[in-house]
Design a protein around this nucleic acid. Structure first.
Lengths: 190, 190
DNA sequence: TCCTCCATGTAAAAGGTTACATGATTTG
DNA sequence: CAAATCATGTAACCTTTTACATGGAGGA
């Protein structure tokens, strides 16, 4: 059983940057490149409550303090921030290995993990991520290539073969990116 | 409300190629490049029943005929095939326009649609797909590029910027692929 | 005989989508 | 003042995931 859904990790990553309300988070999902996550209240508010129940985030009053005795009027901006356990969960996620499954069917989520590394894990971890990412992508592409060649021999320009090719080229582009990104990160004066 | 889930369309596409059992379909999902779809019985058998309830597929006896009066022993290979309504639904899906959402958050599913076109829609439809695919990708990338430039100016080699770049480069690779694929399909002696 | 694979299913739980509901505040 | 936006939530529904269950067939 999974530790948390992709959405929950995305919320942890955003809340690590700064305490925010559910509404702020929804706006981020709706207006930025994180469109992959729904900005519907029916997904975000329940996810926040799950994270709260797991002890990974906590509510802070609108004015920035979690003081007792100040039950601010409901329906006014309710901020959340990470707890220590939440930070630990985020770090564990950021530091986890890149698997074949990650590159084969969760590329966007895996990239989000990389995006959240800044300021949260040492640069060496980001470099290791890129190495693993390239290794898994490369291994996966090598399993696909012979399949593509067999298809291509039997019917070179049919849409099935072309679609297959598109997937392979997408991964090659990622491989290329990963190598350049690694070089940038490894630069002494990065 | 959607017409059918992505899994249901994938099943229609596979069953169009030839009548198959649930088990056959599971093997396809588990062993080929269609790994994006789960091969768990808990997803496929219910999906088949949903399609049957919608009148898009029907059962045929193990020996190939749907004759009445031959209640073959249960627990023996049960084949499904498309009905006329099922073919119509598949064709409608294959012929539908490529939207911004399709390229922004459902690339794999959109490619699958293209892959299933062979033998089911005229070549002109596949070419139109590629034109729309390129148009939407290109439009989407143009909205992302200024965001990337702003990020890049403030912190050129941090992981967030690099991850953003990876998404852009992935789409550029798809654009490139789409143009080459279109040229191949449009060739007189394709 | 035992184990693996074939083949089909069900049950429970989790998660996300869509739609609805409510009220405050800001903007025109 | 009206409308849009801020802000939080609930309810119903659908799909998927995970786990369990069953029994036949074929090979070691």
């Amino acid at each position: 059983m999974k530790d948390a859904s992709a959405l929950e990790f995305a919320l942890l990553g955003l809340l690590k940057q700064r305490p925010q309300s559910g509404y702020d988070l929804r706006k981020t999902f709706g207006t930025t490149a994180m469109r992959q996550y729904s900005d519907s209240p029916g997904s975000i508010y329940p996810a926040l409550r799950r994270l709260e129940a797991k002890g990974r985030i906590e509510r802070v009053g609108p004015d920035g303090e979690a003081g007792a005795g100040q039950e601010a009027d409901p329906r006014r901006k309710q901020l959340f921030r990470l707890t220590a356990a939440g930070e630990a969960a985020l770090l564990a996620w950021l530091s986890s290995q890149v698997t074949r499954e990650d590159v084969a069917l969760r590329l966007a989520e895996t990239m989000l993990r990389f995006a959240f590394m800044d300021g949260n894990v040492p640069r060496a971890t980001a470099i290791r991520f890129l190495d693993e990412y390239a290794r898994e992508l490369s291994g996966y592409v090598e399993t696909l290539r012979p399949q593509w060649e067999a298809m291509h021999r039997s019917s070179p320009i049919h849409t099935g073969v072309l679609a297959f090719r598109s997937g392979i080229e997408g991964m090659e582009a990622q491989l290329d990116w990963a190598r350049r990104a690694r070089a940038l990160l490894a630069e002494p004066r990065g």
